[in-house]
Write a protein that binds this DNA or RNA. Structure first.
Lengths: 343, 343
DNA sequence: TTGAAAGCGCTAACAG
DNA sequence: CTGTTAGCGCTTTCAA
């Protein structure tokens, strides 16, 4: 029942605890008799010894724990990202602590205290909104490295997708498929990801001298996509395509159209962003932009390790996925006929 | 930069470290001068002191960390379950360590070593298959409580859904809707969840003197649902309904039928189990059984805390959700016409 | 090439 | 009611 300690191993091997420690830490490069080392290893095996992490941490002042602070682990995008972080951490022998802030800035703030007490060595951070500077600063002062993922926050190194380029590609695709009257259902204005996607899209349209029919802000949830789509579709019967800030909202929009008796893509085209699993399950298959969530996680973790003082962000490429939800439009640019608008 | 310690707090407050410790641990019930306590609290605030967890752990031999060991965090069912565990742990001031065994018994086994070193106080465990007894026993010997969730494993307390009852309800629904020729696409035979669902279903059919047309085993993934469905649909043109062991497999089956040009629910009905988000996004809406993943997580964590020696399982109720994928069948019981079978 | 000794920061007897 | 003392299990000088 009592834990096996390094002293017992030392005793069994007939050496001192320091020697055992050296073996454990690979500090035996060249200058240790292979025979001694072998005896220690044998003792470790017979006693089934595992070092106590707490003691080691206390001594070294490094926990070997990386925190992943994300808004919602049950969102497949974030869980993929988390897996990416964990994969790289695992390779390096680091543990990961997943902290789910539940889309609440308050809970997120609580977590900063916990992470401080926990003594994590680094944090991969996907903020819910504007992070609590004071709390975060306390960690940074203690030398904890923090990398922001999938967002940008001033003063922090960040790893994100090329949202602007993705949106631009999407816009070009829609334009060349014949869509002109387009409404944009954006994510929260204060999140850089949402803002970038919106801006990339609007700028690309502008090049063709087109303005969106409407721009509404939601919160990246299925429900907000549904609600905004209903609003737009009833107020703007002429709209030809709905572009959402992420896939979840796009799927919500799809259902809204369905519930209003508007056929997709027959009467209105729909596009999303992210390319998360649920989008694959939906019919018509969604036109979207694939964001490498797993890669973002891996890259963020690498940045954490390399710790170059570069506060610049790293931007990963995205890929346009053309589905069935935005087919080429016929010459008709009149939108739905008023009679089909049963808002 | 250097960490603030309990001694510095003590010095500033003009007391001994033990007194500070007492304040920190609420060991001041009645017998401490309020004034002293106030001074300590003030010192803590001015110095912005946070106790070092590692030191505390080393002393108390309790880490305050609960591990959640699950097969796949990007599966919405498990991430919901994990959130349930984390919610209860958070209330009690415990941290949670999410470990993703990636559907691999081997990685799961590795994790037992890590958890041992980490010194977790308890584990909520969703096994991939048959767990490595030896590794798990090491933890248990050291007093680590382990609760199995969403499964049963001999000798462990468990929290699971009433899979048999759910399957029975589903069977009754299908029978009364007029389905007779039913194939069952089960999960892995060695997982109790899959076995219970299958058994509950078959037993309920038997009451009506009916046997399944076929029973095939998959592995709970979308892909296996797809593959098994193709097989069944081409070999058994007479089949009227496909019942899958979980929603992911059911969605796979849906796509398989679609790809084979078989209409759902026109020619064949489909049902699943779990009622996870993606199932909501699919059309036709899936008939399924809602399993309270979040509640299972919460309850498992509670069991961990209560630690009653009850090795009995707690079984949570489920609810039949009737969707559009299994409408009442007309009198025709002839199945699809051979010509529509384009396997 | 190895051992002895001194803590890391905290808590828990045991005194007073 | 509060202080003193002795470690928890490990790593790391410093000596040998």
């Amino acid at each position: 029942m009592g834990r096996v300690t390094i002293r017992e191993v030392a005793a069994l091997a007939g050496v001192s605890p320091s020697t055992v420690s050296r073996v454990l830490n690979g500090k035996d490069a060249g200058h240790m008799r292979p025979e001694t080392k072998e005896r220690v290893l044998a003792a470790i095996r017979t006693l089934d010894y595992t070092p106590a992490k707490a003691a080691r941490t206390l001594r070294k002042k490094k926990t070997g724990v990386i925190a992943i602070l994300i808004p919602d682990i049950s969102n497949p995008f974030f869980s993929l990202l988390a897996r990416g972080v964990a994969a790289v951490a695992f390779e390096r022998g680091l543990s990961t602590l997943i902290c789910d802030s539940d889309n609440s800035v308050e809970k997120e703030t609580q977590y900063w205290d916990i992470l401080l007490a926990e003594g994590v060595d680094g944090v991969v951070f996907v903020p819910v909104g504007r992070p609590n500077e004071a709390k975060v600063t306390r960690l940074r002062r203690r030398g904890v490295r923090i990398v922001v993922a999938d967002r940008r926050v001033d003063g922090y190194p960040a790893v994100e997708a090329d949202n602007q380029a993705g949106s631009a590609a999407l816009a070009v695709h829609l334009l060349s498929a014949g869509y002109r009257r387009i409404a944009y259902l954006a994510g929260p204005a204060e999140v850089s990801t949402a803002a970038d996607r919106l801006e990339g899209f609007v700028v690309a349209l502008r090049v063709a001298n087109i303005e969106p029919v409407a721009v509404l802000h939601g919160d990246f949830t299925y429900q907000s996509g549904y609600d905004l789509a209903r609003r737009v579709l009833s107020r703007h019967p002429e709209v030809e395509a709905l572009v959402a800030g992420n896939d979840l909202m796009a799927i919500g929009a799809l259902r809204a159209a369905e519930d209003m008796g508007i056929s997709v893509p027959g009467e209105v085209g729909i596009a999303g962003f992210d390319h998360v699993l649920p989008a694959d399950l939906v019919r018509p298959r969604l036109t979207t932009v694939a964001v490498p969530a797993y890669e973002i996680g891996k890259e963020a973790m690498r940045q954490l390790l390399e710790g170059g003082e570069a506060v610049e962000g790293r931007v990963l490429p995205v890929e346009l996925i053309v589905g069935e939800s935005t087919p080429r439009r016929g010459g008709d640019s009149s939108g739905r006929t008023p009679t089909s608008d049963k808002s």
